[in-house]
């Protein structure tokens, strides 16, 4: 598979899976059938666990390169978390965190 084919295949697979998941309830729960309780509960608890794994994924470089990207990354995550808890403004928190990360990356 060439580079372009690979990229297009990856995009196509992602698109189909994403649409399929969004459409699934419309297929499964047509005509007033409701979702079982265990599934509802899973829907409440699973997303935050997955988001947590993703944050670890973003900081994975810290393992092999603690002083290069690890410490700036962890510091900037704290900036985002604290500033967001305080102001609840997505825009400000992303800018502040990314700025801290960019600056620290060049200082380390």
């Amino acid at each position: 598979m060439t580079g372009t084919e690979y990229i297009l295949a990856a995009i196509a697979v992602s698109a189909v899976i994403t649409f399929g998941l969004r459409a699934l309830p419309f297929v499964l729960f047509r005509g007033g059938r409701s979702m079982p309780d265990w599934m509802k509960r899973l829907g409440q608890i699973l997303p935050s666990a997955i988001m947590a794994v993703l944050i670890v994924y973003c900081l994975k470089g810290a393992k092999s390169n603690l002083f290069g990207t690890g410490i700036p990354g962890i510091a900037a995550v704290l900036v985002v978390a604290v500033s967001y808890k305080w102001k609840h403004n997505t825009f400000i928190s992303i800018i502040a965190g990314t700025a801290v990360y960019l600056v620290m990356l060049r200082m380390m």
Partner: peptide, 15 residues
Amino acid sequence: GIDFCMTALFVIIFV
């Protein structure tokens, strides 16, 4: 380092 905005987005959703 601009990829950090992805991390920031996830942290915000997480919070």
